[in-house]
């Protein structure tokens, strides 16, 4: 049976992990390769590296970093941040990334999804969606949640699916950072509406939250950052717990 995936996410700026970490036994706390390797050895199923650098030089640094990650880490990893055109995808896949995550660029120009799928295959194309729920329902946001749009979450996810996305990475802005659990209702509806895997993101605070994302939210994978970076939840303990809850995970 296909396992549910646990995915730590690392934010990268100028080649270093951004969020502080008290992760144990790291010689260099900010080194993304060493941190990724530590997660991999702990049993992470995949890694996501998100480049939050804005400058052109930073882009080059990130590509070099992707090369180093690919040389070191023996599990799949996705890279995202600043991917605007096919040449960006080509550069990152050539550096050794397994998948790319596109967000604002796809919302602005949805054809980018078709282009990636036809050139490199759907399996490399993760469409990341930042969305927020208001009285008017769930709507998508651009530029890391800074710019609201009229586009509905479910509508956009269906379109991304139809255009050839391989996975949807859904971050609930209502839940992100508050550690009260994932947006399970919206996740479950997404799972019903699309035919591709959904990765839950935003809200992880306890091990029960992961269980709920998989059972109530029907998610295929769950992504988190700070609970892992600050050692609040260890991946081996999380996986043992999920096993006791009847969830199939890789051990």
């Amino acid at each position: 049976m296909l396992a549910k995936r646990i995915v730590p996410c690392l934010d990268i700026k100028d080649g270093q992990t951004v969020k502080g970490t008290n992760f144990v036994n790291l010689r260099q706390a900010g080194d993304p390769v060493e941190l990724g390797q530590a997660y991999s050895l702990q049993g992470a199923d995949e890694l996501v590296y998100l480049d939050i650098t804005a400058s052109h030089e930073g882009r080059k640094t990130f590509t070099d970093l992707v090369r180093r990650i690919a040389a070191t880490i023996n599990i799949p990893f996705t890279v995202g941040g600043g991917i605007n055109e096919l040449s960006d995808v080509d550069r990152l896949l050539n550096a050794g990334a397994d998948k790319v995550s596109i967000n604002s660029a796809a919302l602005r120009r949805p054809e980018l999804i078709d282009e990636i799928a036809s050139h490199f295959g759907s399996q490399v194309c993760v469409v990341a969606i930042d969305a927020k729920e208001t009285e008017a329902g769930w709507h998508c946001y651009l530029n890391g949640g800074r710019i609201p749009t009229e586009r509905g979450l479910f509508d956009w996810a269906r379109e991304a699916n139809n255009r050839g996305a391989g996975e949807i990475l859904f971050t609930s802005m209502n839940h992100d950072g508050v550690k009260t659990g994932f947006a399970n209702e919206a996740l479950a509806r997404l799972a019903d509406e699309v035919s591709i895997p959904v990765i839950a993101s935003g809200g992880a605070g306890t091990m029960e939250h992961f269980r709920d994302a998989f059972i109530q939210g029907k998610a295929d994978a769950a992504l988190a950052a700070s609970v892992f970076h600050f050692g609040e939840i260890g991946i081996p303990e999380l996986k043992s717990y999920l096993c006791t809850q009847g969830i199939n995970v890789r051990k």
């Binding site: 759907s122 996975e167 295929d220």
Partner: peptide
Amino acid sequence: KVPQMGWN
């Protein structure tokens, strides 16, 4: 889901 993607 097709493709199968992940750990089995």
